[in-house]
Design a protein around this nucleic acid. Sequence first.
DNA 1: GATGAATGAGTCTTCATTCAT
DNA 2: GATGAATGAAGACTCATTCAT
Lengths: 209, 209, 209, 209
Amino acid sequence: MDITAPRHLKARKRPRQARSASTVDAIFEATIQVLISGGTQRLTTTRVAERAGVSVGTMYQYFPHKQALLYALNERYLDLLAERMENVCRSQHGKTSREMIEALVNAYWEAKTERSDVTRALYSSAVELDNEALIDAFAKRMDAATQEMLRSAPSAQYKDIQLIEITLLSVIFGTVRNVFERNLPVKEQAAIREQLIAMCLSYLQSCGG
Amino acid sequence: MDITAPRHLKARKRPRQARSASTVDAIFEATIQVLISGGTQRLTTTRVAERAGVSVGTMYQYFPHKQALLYALNERYLDLLAERMENVCRSQHGKTSREMIEALVNAYWEAKTERSDVTRALYSSAVELDNEALIDAFAKRMDAATQEMLRSAPSAQYKDIQLIEITLLSVIFGTVRNVFERNLPVKEQAAIREQLIAMCLSYLQSCGG
Amino acid sequence: MDITAPRHLKARKRPRQARSASTVDAIFEATIQVLISGGTQRLTTTRVAERAGVSVGTMYQYFPHKQALLYALNERYLDLLAERMENVCRSQHGKTSREMIEALVNAYWEAKTERSDVTRALYSSAVELDNEALIDAFAKRMDAATQEMLRSAPSAQYKDIQLIEITLLSVIFGTVRNVFERNLPVKEQAAIREQLIAMCLSYLQSCGG
Amino acid sequence: MDITAPRHLKARKRPRQARSASTVDAIFEATIQVLISGGTQRLTTTRVAERAGVSVGTMYQYFPHKQALLYALNERYLDLLAERMENVCRSQHGKTSREMIEALVNAYWEAKTERSDVTRALYSSAVELDNEALIDAFAKRMDAATQEMLRSAPSAQYKDIQLIEITLLSVIFGTVRNVFERNLPVKEQAAIREQLIAMCLSYLQSCGG
DNA sequence: GATGAATGAGTCTTCATTCAT
DNA sequence: GATGAATGAAGACTCATTCAT
C-alpha cells in the first residue's frame, strides 16, 4: 500500500525494534483519542505527544510532520480494514448471493460502527489530507476481493461483473457513511441495514445472480 | 430552518437592506472561493474579507466569529438544496415510480456534481462544525417531500413508506457522495448512476411500488 | 536601492503614516539593541518586538519574516552611509588630492567608528543574509561618487581612473574593517589612520594625481 | 595558542592516538562541508556527526559543545595560516622590499582565495564566536614574523617599524577580505592585487625602505 | 458605521545535549 | 567506549478577534 504514497507524507523511519513499534502505536492511539475528544481543531502535536507519553521530539523522529502522522494513521486503518474485508470476501467463496451480500454489508457496517467515535475521528482526520493514494489503494483491494467473491458464486452468470461490483461497493460504502453521519437511532439503523441487504440482493439477482 | 440552530452560531444580524444582503452574499461567495483555492488550511477571516471586498471589521458585524460564517454558509446551501429537491419531488407527484426515482437521483446527482469544486469546498467547510441541526433540518424536509411524492404514486401500495423512503434517501445520498469522493472517470460515474436508478427502482417495486 | 532587492526579502508594507514610520523605526532600533546586547544568537523575533514595544504580530505586518527585517535594516544603514559618503565626495570636488583622500578616509573611518557597537551589530546581522544586492548597490554608488570626485581634481591626469578608484575604496574600506575588528587601542588606531592616508596619497600621486 | 583560550571553549580531550586525531580531522572536515553546503543555518551537530561518519555521542566526547567545535576549527585554521605565513616571511629574510611585499601579499591572497568556499565557511563560522583570543594570537605571530622580515632588509632604515608593519598588515589583510567579499571578477581582482602591491611598496619606500 | 492595525495566545518544528544500552 | 533515541526548551510565524480612529 506504500507504493504510491506521496513521498513527503512517508513516515520518517520504519519502526524496527519492539520499543519503536510500541511508541508508534502509542502515538497512533493518542492521535485517535485526541481527535475523539476535541476534533481536528484540538489536534496539536503537543497534545498528541503528551497523551502518548512521549516528547514532541520523539514524535518528530517517527513522523516528519503532522500531516505524515495523519497520513500514516489513515494508511494503517485502511490497511487493517482492507485486510478484514478481504478475509470476509474470501470466506464467502462459493456461497450464495444472499450470503455474500449479507456478509459484505454486515462486515462493513460493523467495522464502521463498532467504534463509531474512532470512525468519526478518522473521517475528520482525513479531510485536509492528500490521501487519494490511500483511498485508491483501498478501493483496488476491495474491488479485487469483491469481484473474485462474486465470480465464485456457483450458479451466477453476471454480464458486466466489474460494473456490478463497483456499484455494489459504492452503494454499500456510501449508505453506511450516510446513515452513520445522520446519527439515526439504533433501531432505525438496523432496519435500514436490512433494507440495504434486500436492495443489493434484488439488484444482484436482476443482474443474473 | 433557524429554529434549532445553536445560539452561538447564529449570525449577529439579519441582513435587512439590499446592501447588507449583497455584502453577505459577497462574503459567502468569497468563502467558497477561498476554500476552493486553498482548502480549510487557507481559510482565514482576513482572506475571506479581502476577497469579499470588505474589511474584517465589517465581516464581524455580520458574523460574530468564523464558525458562525461557516454555519450560515452551510445553512444557506442546504436551504437552497432542500428547496430545489422539494420542487423536484413536487413536480413528480402522480408520476410513475420510474419517473420519480429517475428525477430524484438525477436531481441530487446533478446538484452535487455541476459545481464539484463548490461541493467539495462545502464538504470541507462542514467538517469542524457542529452542524447536526442543519443536517437534521435538511433531512426532515427531504423526508417529508419524498414521502409525499411516493404517496402520490397512482398505483402503488407501500407497506412501510417511512422506512422505504429513508432507505432510498440514504442509499442515494450516500452513493452520490461516495462516487463523488472516489473521483471516478466520468463514464464510470454515469454508468453507476444508471445502475443506482435501476437498483432503487427494483427495490421500490419489490416493496409494492 | 530597491531595484534589485530579492523579492522575498522585501518589507511587507511601506510605512505611510506617521505612526507606521515610528513603529518601523522602533523595530529597527530594537533590532540593533538586541544585536548589541546578545549577538545574532539572541536575536529572536519575540525579543525584538518586546524591546520595540510592539507585539510580534505587529512586527510581522511590517516584515514578512526575520530575514526581511534584517535585510531592511541593512538596506537602510547602507542607504544612509552611501548618502553621507556621497555628500563628502561632492564637497571635495575641485580640491587637492590630499584633501580628497583625507576627507574620504576620515569620513568612512568615523562613520564606522562613532558607534562601533552598532557597526558591529550590523556586520553580524548581515552574515546569514543574501545581501549581495545591497552590497552591490552600495558599491556602485560609492564607485560613482568617488570617480566623479577624482575626476574633478584640477591638476590630476589619471591613467585608469576606474582601477585607481576601486583600489582606493577596497583598501580604505578593508583597512577600516580590519582595524575595527582587531580592536586596537585608540591611539594605535589613530596612527594607522594617518598612515593609511599617507599611503593612499602617495599611491594617488604615483598614479599621476 | 591555547594559552589564552577561554576555558569553556577548550576541547574536552586532546586527541592522543592516531584514531582520535583522524576522528577530529573528520569532524573538522565535515563541519566545513556542512557550512559550505548550507551555511550557519544548516550547521547542526547531528548533521556534522553524520557527515563525519561518527555518532553525535562520539562527537561530544571530543567537543563538549558546538561552540567548542567551532572554536577549535578556527584555532586550527589560524594556526595553519600563521605557520604558512611565518614560513613565507622567513623565506624572504634579506631580500628586497619589493620581494617581501610581493611575497606577503601573494601568499595571503592565495591562502584566502585558493579555496574560497572554505574561507567563506570559516568566516561565517567565526561570527558568533568569542574568538578574540584567536585573532590576537594570530595577529601577534604575524606581527612578529613580519617585523623580523622587515628588519632583515639589507639597506632599509625604518623609523617606526612597528607602526609600519601593523599598517601593512592591516591594509593587506583588510583589502584581501574586502575584495574577497565583493566578489569581483577574477580579472579585476588580479588588477587590484597588483595595485595593492604597488601601493604597499611605495609606502614602504616612503618610510625609508 | 466602517476600517484595518494591533494583539498575543497558540501552533508547528528544530536541535543542542544527555544517558541508557 | 560508542551509539543514537529521547528530551523539551525555545524559536518563527499565524490568525481570530478587538477597538481606536
